[in-house]
Design a protein around this nucleic acid. Structure first.
Lengths: 145, 145
DNA sequence: TATTGTTATACTCTATAACTATA
DNA sequence: TATAGTTATAGAGTATAACAATA
């Protein structure tokens, strides 16, 4: 394991944190769907990967508190983007799944997003994109619960 | 320039955006100073790099609107973390600089931050960290104004 | 008694609009 | 007339606390 207390690792780690925070603010302004907040979009993305999850699991994955996830899921349901079903084994819990409409919206959003990313790409060369591609899975790992 | 409309680039780009948003939420909860918001910390970091800046420049760099930066700078000044001086050439503008107290706080914050990052590091191998180090400057480039 | 999810409420952060002062 | 910064106000998003239902 690397040593973060000094040297290049510490410098990189500071740069990383700063860049992630600033880039997240920038991306926030580039919503593909103005009616959905970043967390709401992220929940749909998580469901697309996981298939199904309980509200509690989603809250843990998205790093929000359960009441916040209640509100988010209710909003997504009212827009027809997720379905809420009773849990088969535990009547306290619920199961959240995405609808076909959500899947179509995610596909459309990817296309729109690329317009913005293409504008960001000006100034990046192939080598820099290769570094981003390589780091993406590692960032996902860090973002995990 | 890469092609984002399909294939591996599009997949990586989606993973990247999702990971940045989720990681930023996670980092938000790991504030080194509970009394400062992420943007306020980021402003101090920017000042540490740039030396000095006007409120307008800071607003552009941090991707917030000028009134928000007014509030942030006023709060930082009230805590003795920045100084506000008149602009030498233009009496409309002001110049913001960090104090010695801010510098000491940033140094302390780096140490505390590393405790959290070390816990995240469990599960990452040297190769994964190398990828993060390589990608950090590219992410900073994307975060730029 | 512990856990899942909800309701009610308050707070933090940021934005927009309107204003002041200077260029 | 345009620009830098401020003031006042409103809105989005999240949290905490208290509660209901189930384990």
């Amino acid at each position: 394991m690397p040593d973060f207390s000094q040297g290049d690792d510490a410098v990189a780690v500071n740069a990383l944190r700063s860049a992630v925070m600033r880039l997240s603010r920038r991306l926030k302004h580039q919503r593909v769907d103005e009616s959905l907040s970043p967390t709401e979009m992220s929940v749909l993305g998580t469901l697309a990967r996981c298939g199904r999850a309980t509200p509690g699991e989603l809250a843990r994955k998205e790093h929000v508190q359960p009441p916040s996830m209640t509100r988010i899921v209710a909003l997504l349901e009212s827009k027809g983007l997720v379905r809420l079903e009773p849990h088969p084994d535990d009547r306290r819990q619920k199961v959240v799944t995405q609808t076909e409409q959500a899947e179509a919206m995610l596909e459309e959003s990817r296309r729109k997003r690329n317009v913005f990313l293409a504008s960001l790409a000006e100034g990046l060369d192939e080598d820099e994109w290769a570094k981003l591609r390589a780091a993406a899975p590692v960032l996902e790992k860090l973002a995990h619960v």
